[in-house]
Design a protein around this nucleic acid. Structure first.
Length: 457
DNA sequence: ATCGGCTCGCGCAA
DNA sequence: TGCGCGAAGCCGAT
């Protein structure tokens, strides 16, 4: 298949193979609706009159994760299991090493082909390559996380949002199209597959969070509810108030999008529909502003991680940022905090502590505060490498949307000036954009925010 | 309250 | 080769 125009590409050069089933290895896109990887696997199976099965692999131990993230994922997967059963598509969850499990399941079921959904993160791309090399049957990967497949949108790492935006706007009309529905699959496996969710939950251990009260509920249906509620009641003020953490103007679907419970194509299609239904100026500006987030800024993060394999380290920073941070490496730091102090929200900065506590309590932090939060960690640690490592540790452990290209891109934007331009030189930051508490006060009522998120509150 | 400068390099026009 | 302009700002001058 042609890499430049298609959503699904071949991972190896193995020709058509005989077999008894087609396997879709679900990973990043944990949904049945609007899932082009599932659709591609189903078409391949229908063409050959074969049963279709979906395999999900759970690693038994992943560093920097919390029980909250696993709970969110497993409940969503139980919903996936039901939705697949309604379509006569088998669903199997395996625990352990992904490569071994995929190879074993492919062998046991005499698979004819394997389909993956796409992620630019190193663990996933490496897994896809390893399986494609050793499984001996055709393997494919489908980008159903991005509206425009990452390899179609651009063939290189983009410099900034403005260089990417032109390409996105040119391609968007052909990709903002309604996906076909998954059909009831006519061919089924000989034996019925079942999953023991108690056993699966017990096998994936991660530390529980104290005092944790998520503000979003998990699952494909809940994601749809959040989205509809946002479009109906918040979109009109989104453009004006999305940077005010007190205003509750956001869609609250980032965790669902991260786990693939909701596709950003669905989000964009539903947001676009609001234009036809509303003449109200606020709604029209809201659509434009929200579409910018969903189609340009979000997809830019996949572009970055896909084309820059050092997306989570100092080396991922553009050259000017590395140079300026190196020049200011030994600058005096007003405060130095350990990772433990940061994790416990024990700094001298009330705004920062509030943001950290918001994250610990809810698995979320307001988008505007995420930038301030990461930039201050640069200011308060011994060097930029430590700042990046600490921020990624906290990001991946506590955010429900952790372990995502969005997080790494935000962190390198904040700490290293990725996708940004240089600003006035100052201590520690060099020419990387600085943010100050006085700026937060200018933009919103900071005292209301800090009062809402207090230690022992 | 508002405004210009800070500071770098991509991408396009010429 | 020149030039406009950019992922969410800050600061000092007016």
């Amino acid at each position: 298949m042609d890499n430049n125009t298609t959503r699904t590409v071949a991972l190896n050069a193995v020709g058509n193979t005989q077999g008894d089933a087609v396997i879709y290895v679900m990973s990043r896109d944990q949904r049945v609706r609007d899932n082009f990887a599932l659709l591609a696997a189903q078409k391949y199976a229908l063409d050959r009159k074969l049963p279709l099965m979906t395999l999900f692999n759970v690693y038994s131990s992943v560093p920097n994760r919390s029980a909250a993230q696993y709970a969110f994922m497993f409940s969503g997967l139980e919903e996936v299991e039901q939705d697949l059963a309604a379509k006569q598509i088998a669903f199997l969850v395996k625990v352990g090493d992904a490569k071994n499990n995929i190879l074993q399941v492919a062998r046991t079921h005499h698979a004819a082909a394997v389909f993956f959904d796409f992620s630019p993160l190193r663990g996933l791309t490496a897994l896809h390559e390893k399986v494609a090399r050793s499984v001996g049957i055709p393997c494919f990967v489908t980008d159903t996380h991005n509206i425009i497949p990452v390899w179609v949108a651009s063939d290189h790492q983009e410099w900034a949002a403005h260089t990417f935006r032109r390409k996105v706007h040119k391609l968007l009309p052909q990709f903002l199209a309604e996906p076909a529905p998954v059909t009831r699959h006519p061919y089924t496996l000989q034996q019925q597959l079942t999953n023991d969710w108690t056993q699966i939950r017990a096998a994936a251990t991660a530390p529980a969070l104290e005092d944790y009260r998520p503000i979003v509920k998990t699952g494909e249906k809940e994601a749809g509810k959040n989205l509809r509620h946002f479009l109906k009641t918040k979109l009109g003020r989104y453009a004006q108030q999305r940077n005010d953490p007190n205003s509750d103007s956001l869609s609250n679907v980032s965790a669902h999008i991260h786990f693939g419970q909701l596709s950003s194509l669905r989000v964009a299609l539903d947001a676009q529909k609001m234009l036809a239904q509303h003449k109200d100026q606020g709604v029209r500006e809201g659509v434009q502003s929200y579409m910018e987030e969903v189609t340009v800024r979000k997809e830019l993060s996949d572009n970055f991680c896909y084309y820059n394999r050092t997306y989570d380290s100092f080396e991922g920073i553009p050259e000017w940022g590395q140079k300026t941070l190196t020049k200011h490496r030994t600058d005096h730091r007003e405060h130095l905090y350990t990772l433990e102090q940061l994790e416990a929200a024990q700094t001298a900065d009330a705004a920062w502590n509030a943001a950290q506590i918001q994250m610990l309590r809810t698995g979320k932090m307001h988008g505007y505060m995420r930038m301030y939060w990461a930039k201050k960690i640069l200011e308060w640690t011994e060097d930029p490498e430590s700042a990046i490592a600490y921020t990624i540790y906290l990001n991946d452990k506590y955010f429900l949307d952790g372990y995502d290209p969005m997080g790494y891109t935000n962190i390198l934007w904040s700490i290293g000036g990725l996708h940004d331009r240089p600003w006035r030189q100052r201590e520690v930051y060099g020419t990387v954009r600085y943010m100050a508490m006085s700026g937060l006060r200018r933009k919103f009522d900071l005292d209301t925010y800090t009062a809402a998120w207090q230690n022992d509150g």
